[in-house]
Design a protein around this nucleic acid. Structure first.
Length: 567
RNA sequence: GCCGGCGUAGCUCAGUUGGUAAGAGCGUAGGAUUCAUAACCCUAAGGUCGGUGGUUCAAUUCCACCCGCCGGCACCA
């Protein structure tokens, strides 16, 4: 019986386009995992969308001089296109303020908030904050500058000084200025609802401690996630305001004058986006939005969140606490967090940074390169346990020597050989010797190993298994010397090529989650029907006499040119 | 400062519960071969597993300290 998985990727903020670092962290691994599950016939829903609310999109809109709704809708569309071009196929790509999703998102977010409110987990508190009269908004720390109360540095930020390193409350800042309008903000009182996270310390700790061990078909969580989350609990979880003074977002759904003009904290409504996008998807495919409960409240579903390391605290602590407070949701079965991807330029390694202009934008990259080499490279260097660096020279190198040299070359030499000397037909199986049988067994062994690694979210290792098979198969081809054998004993040569053809089919199935485009081309060259690359069919043999399609090259050589798409 | 992570062959990295595992890929150098996108195959190189102590019959793998790099400790997403 098929298992059920609800897979999510962290919502990208809809105020910018995507770079390869985004892809490597939360999206590509999730897509590979989903493709793997699908090919096994599991019941999967893959959910993502843009995070449209909050201050950041508001600020970007102000900077670009466009209405915020236009901005987020535009970037949502860009992201959707970029993902599609690199083969990341979500079942639903929503947006927390996208016209097609905003109504559902508000309904579910507000219901979620009200439910927690009724259970008494919020605390209403009043505090003083800086308010920009001209911009008509309260100012988060990053939008205030002034003189450091500690060292007198005139260029200190709202909450900390870069010169002396001290931190302080924004209201201590001397001569504060709004970075939005440049005006001097005034101190105003404001009321917010705080989630008492402290009440969930014990249940969260027990829940997380249990994740150090495997559960059912789920492996233990990565240490990086557990250490970080448990460390936070050890330090004590503070109350956190779940509302903000903004006009852009989900209105606070309380019949209280103090809730006037306030919205939910963006990090409160963002994870609920996973739920509301699911609900909208159910409404659009079948008609009943309430079907989302099958995915979110039925313990038969495994909820798997793929995120970047910066989201760990929210997915391993805040979001589970919210779910526990709300009461009717089941907690995530797995939170897969990846580290950041740096970028290597020459000999220096640095973070992707818009201001430094070193980001490798996905859209631009795909204008120069095919999606599979990028998917291959980002998986091969996946920052699963530590940060790694994207290096274009390394990508080109690996594309040429590994992807093309080992995998592409093997597929090509086999299929062109069959085309030239065996009329493009899978030859008869003669007598298979030990080496032939060992070669065929290697396909099954590789599949088993990949399965073990994929089930444990070890994508880099699974890809390594695949490539090892490709290399070994090249050795098989060389050792068997079919180009000699076919002349002296055509039937024996046919037996060798039969084994080679079976291996090509196995590789097509096994590469599909990682290299979907190349797998499709291989499927066509093998003249197999669409949708036939099922995981369990990797070792089901092509029958003798099966007529193959026209061979084509899977990969092309890249050269490191002067004009690299890293600018 | 406190907490966490990392530091293994030229490069990128694997190393499960401590004991013939010190490994893979790439790069480099030889050799072989021609079916294949000058691709593929074979062989070699020998890195004090960041440093110093300690536990142990035995440590890259456990502990302590030190050095170096990175991250977290924000009403920032």
């Amino acid at each position: 019986m098929a298992r059920r998985f609800l897979v999510t990727s962290g919502l990208p903020y809809s105020n910018g386009r995507l770079h390869v670092g985004h892809l490597a962290g939360a999206y590509l691994p999730a897509d590979i995992f989903v493709r793997y599950l699908r090919s096994k016939g599991e019941d999967v829903l893959f959910v993502c969308g843009s995070d449209d609310n909050g201050v950041a999109s508001l600020m970007s809109a102000r900077k670009e001089g466009v209405p915020v709704q236009d901005l987020v809708t535009r970037y949502n569309a860009f992201q959707k296109e970029d993902f599609s071009r690199v083969g990341v196929e979500f079942d639903v790509y929503g947006g927390t303020h996208h016209p097609d999703f905003v109504e559902m998102h508000e309904r579910i977010s507000q219901g979620f908030f009200r439910s927690i409110h009724e259970k008494g987990f919020f605390e209403k508190k009043t505090s003083k904050q800086l308010y920009d009269v001209e911009a008509k908004q309260f100012l988060p720390d990053r939008y205030v500058e002034g003189t450091c109360p500690n060292c007198g540095n005139p260029d200190a930020h709202g909450d900390q000084c870069d010169r002396c390193g001290s931190t302080y409350d924004q209201i201590e800042l001397i001569d504060p200025k709004s970075t939005v309008t440049g005006t001097t903000p005034e101190l105003r009182e404001t009321t917010h609802w705080y989630l008492r996270l402290g009440e969930f310390e014990t249940p969260l700790r027990e829940w997380l401690e249990a994740k150090r061990e495997p559960h059912g078909d789920q492996p233990a969580w990565r240490d990086t996630v557990l250490n970080f989350a448990l460390g936070q609990i050890k330090q004590g979880l503070p109350e956190r305001a779940m509302t903000r003074d903004l006009h852009w977002g989900v209105p606070v759904p309380l019949d209280d004058p103090d809730a006037e003009g306030k919205v939910l904290y963006v990090w409160f409504d963002a994870p609920i986006g996973y739920v509301s996008f699911t609900a909208q998807h159910c409404a659009d495919h079948g008609g009943d939005w309430k079907e989302y409960e099958r995915w979110w409240k039925d313990s038969e579903t495994r909820i798997v969140h793929f995120i970047g390391e910066d989201n760990t605290v929210f997915h391993a602590l805040t979001w589970p606490a919210m779910m526990q407070a709300e009461g009717s949701y089941q907690l995530p079965a797995q939170v897969v967090a990846n580290s950041f991807l740096n970028v290597k330029l020459g000999d220096t390694e640095e973070k992707f940074s818009k201001s430094r202009g070193n980001a490798v934008w996905l859209g631009e990259f795909l204008n120069e390169f095919d999606p599979d080499p990028l998917r291959y490279y980002l998986t091969a260097i996946a920052p699963e346990s530590a940060r790694t660096a994207f290096d274009l020279a390394d990508l080109v190198q690996r594309n040429n020597s590994e992807l093309l040299g080992a995998l592409g070359n093997y597929v090509n030499r086999t299929l062109t050989f069959l085309q030239r000397f065996y009329e493009g037909v899978v030859p008869e199986v003669g007598e298979r010797d030990e080496r032939d049988l060992a070669q065929l067994a290697r396909v099954a062994e590789t599949q088993a190993s990949m399965e073990k690694n994929l089930d444990a979210y070890r994508f880099k290792a699974a890809l390594g298994d695949l490539m090892a098979l490709a290399r070994e198969t090249n050795a098989y081809f060389n050792d068997k010397e079919p180009w000699k054998v076919r002349k002296t004993d055509p039937a024996a040569g046919g037996t060798i090529l039969n084994v080679c053809a079976q291996t090509v089919k196995g590789l097509a199935v096994l590469m599909a989650p990682f290299l979907p485009y190349s797998a499709e081309v291989t499927r066509e060259m093998l003249a197999l029907p669409e949708g036939s690359l099922r995981w369990q069919d990797a070792t089901v043999e092509l029958p003798s006499g099966h007529v193959l399609g026209e061979p084509r090259l899977l990969f092309r050589q890249y050269e490191l040119s002067e004009e690299q798409p890293t600018d």
